Amino acid sequence: MPAFDAVVVTSGVNTMDMRPVLREIDASLYKEEVPYLLVGCRVKTQSVPQATTDLAEIASLGYTVARTLIRELTVHSDCVRESRPITQMPGGAHSTARAAEREYRTLAREVFAGLLGMGTEADRKLLAGRRGMKWPDAASESSQKKGKK
């Protein structure tokens, strides 16, 4: 029996990254009935529309996919180089630091509200209206992958 409640699986949104990730979800997480949430990360800003389409297709196959994407922003490298969290990086309301912070906070809300069922009603409403995407609710039993493709 696994020693954790759920898993957040991060992956780049491209075939090279996704195929082995989906195989591992099939082989390990689905088999053991571990709740998971697949998150697209390292998405170049100009590739967001295609990544969104790709993730929606993966969700349509029965995988539990986050509505929130984490874009590839230069501030991520800056944080590592300066050994500082994004929340402590300089920048105003329209900086990449604040954009990255918003993405991580939205993902955290999605994980707690959907995957773990711990969010507030306001969190669920916020996430339900994101970009009009028609993903299954991560908290619902029917959103978990039903079987092998």
Rank of each mutant, 00 (worst) to 15 (best):
E24A: 15
R109H: 14
L22Y: 06
A139K: 05
A139F: 05
E141W: 09
T68P: 06
P85M: 05
M16P: 11
R19C: 07
M16L: 12
A108T: 13
A99C: 11
E24C: 14
L29Y: 07
E33C: 01
L69T: 10
K148W: 07
E121V: 13
F4K: 05
E101V: 08
T52F: 12
L116T: 01
Y30W: 06
I70H: 04
R71Y: 03
T64I: 01
E32F: 04
P85L: 06
Q88T: 08
Y63V: 04
D123M: 09
R130M: 15
T74I: 03
G12K: 09
L107N: 11
Y104E: 12
K145I: 05
F112N: 14
Q50P: 02
K149I: 01
K134W: 10
D17Q: 06
M133D: 14
L22A: 04
S47A: 04
A97Q: 06
P49R: 04
S60V: 07
M133V: 15
R23H: 13
E32M: 04
S142V: 11
T87G: 12
L37F: 02
Y30I: 02
L73S: 01
V9M: 09
L61P: 02
I86W: 01
G40L: 07
T68H: 04
R19E: 14
Q50F: 00
A108E: 14
T53Y: 01
V48R: 10
E141F: 08
E24Y: 14
T74Y: 01
R23D: 09
Q88N: 13
T15N: 13
G132V: 14
A3R: 12
D54Q: 01
M89A: 00
S28M: 05
H94V: 12
S83L: 13
G62D: 01
H76M: 09
D17S: 15
M18Y: 01
S95I: 09
E32T: 00
L61E: 12
R67K: 15
Y36C: 00
D78L: 04
E141N: 11
G91Q: 08
K146C: 02
G40E: 01
R19A: 11
T87D: 13
V75F: 01
E103M: 15
L126P: 07
S143C: 14
A27N: 10
R42N: 02
R19M: 07
D54G: 00
E141M: 07
P85E: 08
C79S: 08
V21K: 03
R105S: 10
R124D: 09
S143D: 10
L22R: 08
G92H: 08
S143F: 02
A99Q: 15
L38D: 07
V39W: 02
V111T: 10
T87C: 10
L115I: 07
A138P: 15
